[in-house]
């Protein structure tokens, strides 16, 4: 009986560890310029997606972003920038839960700075979602405002990678 209890306890603790290992990579940032630091240096292309849970097309394209991330290796690095903190009484917890539910493996920024400062930094008009692709040196190569098309985005990224070779 004791053995059974010990086994159950061990199983439970292992399960908890496994679950916590799945927790999304969500980093709070206030300064837009620090977003670049989220990417690994080796990536040839860096994709930034600005989104929020309160944005219907942003939520709708989350499975597409996951598929795009799955379609590439280390040559393409992705990062999300969540604007959920723009709402009063917001917290990162539901965002982590949402990212976990969608099995998002790429890092996300929980942006706590001024929305206008982010708009200036990424040069967009405030309408989300927006997806921007940069090269490894930070030069912008492509951007798309509104919901992305999974296949077209993958094709565009492949084309950009080809051009770099």
């Amino acid at each position: 009986m004791r053995k059974c209890a010990r086994f159950a306890a061990t199983f439970l603790s292992v399960s908890v560890l496994a679950l916590s290992a799945q927790a999304a990579d969500l980093r709070s940032l206030k300064e837009p310029a620090k977003i670049a630091g989220v990417f690994p240096r080796a990536a040839q292309l860096r994709l930034v997606n600005v989104w929020a849970m309160w944005c219907v097309p942003c939520v709708a394209e989350m499975p597409d972003l996951r598929a795009i991330d799955d379609a590439f290796g280390a040559e393409v690095a992705m990062a999300g920038v969540s604007l959920d903190d723009m709402l009063p009484d917001a917290s990162p917890k539901p965002v982590v839960k949402f990212l976990d539910q969608h099995k998002i493996a790429f890092p996300n920024v929980y942006y706590t700075g001024n929305p206008d400062a982010l708009g200036d930094y990424l040069k967009f008009n405030g309408e989300i979602p927006i997806t921007i692709v940069y090269d490894g040196a930070g030069k912008e190569l492509w951007r798309h405002q509104g919901r992305i098309d999974r296949n077209q985005t993958i094709a565009r990224l492949r084309e950009l990678l080809r051009r770099k070779r």
């Binding site: 944005c55 219907v56 206008d116 708009g119 008009n125 405030g126 989300i128």
Partner: peptide
């Protein structure tokens, strides 16, 4: 002339 953030018009 300021930047309007928000939900895309449906």
């Amino acid at each position: 002339d300021t930047r309007a953030f928000g939900c895309t018009i449906k």
